[in-house]
């Protein structure tokens, strides 16, 4: 898919995110909006993923370690017709397959594993990548994490094992939006220098603008061609990207727009 089309899809995904979160009345817009381009490029251009057969053994795997950002994933899955667009408005409602955090037991196509407790996705990714290697498979594994999430110790146990096991079929992405719940990452508990840390653990690292499709696709390609090492894409992003009153504003981590704010946001996206 060409950049212009990717941008059009991204715009729709952002609209979905705002619409579904407003409808749900709770949830996490900031970290959903920051990850849009990273996921759109991944699902539309990079991953082996068949929307009609999401459990195909030949598929690439995606794990949303920062599970609270699931609206972006649900929307991408609906753009791919895995999920009916109408179902998006059931987000966070009783009995919905679109739980507040991705729920494996609800059998939504494309959800590999339940997540939402931070710090677990990279270990799961290491396990999937190791499992694929152990059966000489060619599939790839993608794990998306938050930058605040990097504070969890379990991430570093996983990072160590991925480097040690030379899992070059594993590509991790950090949605580096500089914010967590309680404020700026650098004020709460700094994680820098992140690239150096991953390199020290045996990873190949790439630093990009996480809203620039050219850079994103180049980074994924670089991950595919990197041998004997896992790749970490540190994607500089803007929390709340696309909605000016949400951008870089920590208040929009876990707060949803009112109907008026949603309409303002949708209008801005149309510009």
């Amino acid at each position: 898919m060409e950049v212009e089309q990717l941008k059009a899809v991204s715009k729709n995904v952002r609209k979905d995110i705002l619409t579904m979160l407003t409808e749900a009345g709770s949830g996490h817009p900031g970290g959903s909006l920051s990850a849009v381009e990273l996921l759109v490029e991944l699902y539309f251009n990079q991953m082996k993923f068949n929307p009609d057969n999401t459990t195909d053994p030949g598929r690439d795997y995606f794990i949303l370690s920062k599970g609270h950002a699931c609206p972006v994933l649900y929307s991408v899955l609906s753009q791919l017709k895995c999920v009916d667009n109408k179902e998006l408005c059931t987000l966070r409602k009783p009995g919905s397959r679109l739980q507040g955090h991705p729920a494996k037991d609800k059998n939504l196509p494309g959800i590999e594993v339940s997540t939402g407790s931070l710090g677990y996705g990279l270990s799961i990714g290491v396990g999937v990548a190791l499992g694929i290697k152990s059966r000489q498979g060619a599939n790839r594994v993608y794990v998306m994490m938050g930058d605040g999430e990097q504070q969890e110790g379990s991430i570093w146990e996983a990072a160590m094992s991925a480097g040690h096991l030379k899992l070059d079929n594993l590509c991790a992405i950090v949605d580096y939006n500089n914010l967590q719940i309680d404020g700026k990452i650098s004020d709460v508990m700094g994680v820098e220098p992140l690239a150096d840390k991953y390199r020290a653990f045996g990873w190949h690292t790439v630093e990009i603008d996480g809203h620039d499709f050219k850079q994103i696709s180049k980074a994924y390609a670089e991950a595919k061609s990197t041998k004997s090492r896992p790749t970490m894409i540190l994607a500089r992003t803007i929390k709340g990207k696309g909605v000016s009153f949400m951008e870089n504003n920590v208040d929009w981590h876990g707060k949803v727009p009112s109907k008026e704010q949603r309409d303002m946001a949708l209008k801005e996206l149309e510009k």
């Binding site: 931070l118 710090g119 605040g148 999430e149 504070q151 969890e152 110790g153 967590q180 719940i181 309680d182 990452i185 709460v188 508990m189 876990g254």
Partner: peptide
């Protein structure tokens, strides 16, 4: 990293020198 939502901020604002936020850890 959940200080406000678990109401720890009330103490943290009064006694910043006796509060530490360890992050998501």
């Amino acid at each position: 990293d959940t200080a406000a939502s678990v109401a720890l901020n009330i103490f943290a604002e009064a006694f910043p020198e006796r509060f530490v936020n360890v992050g998501v850890a």
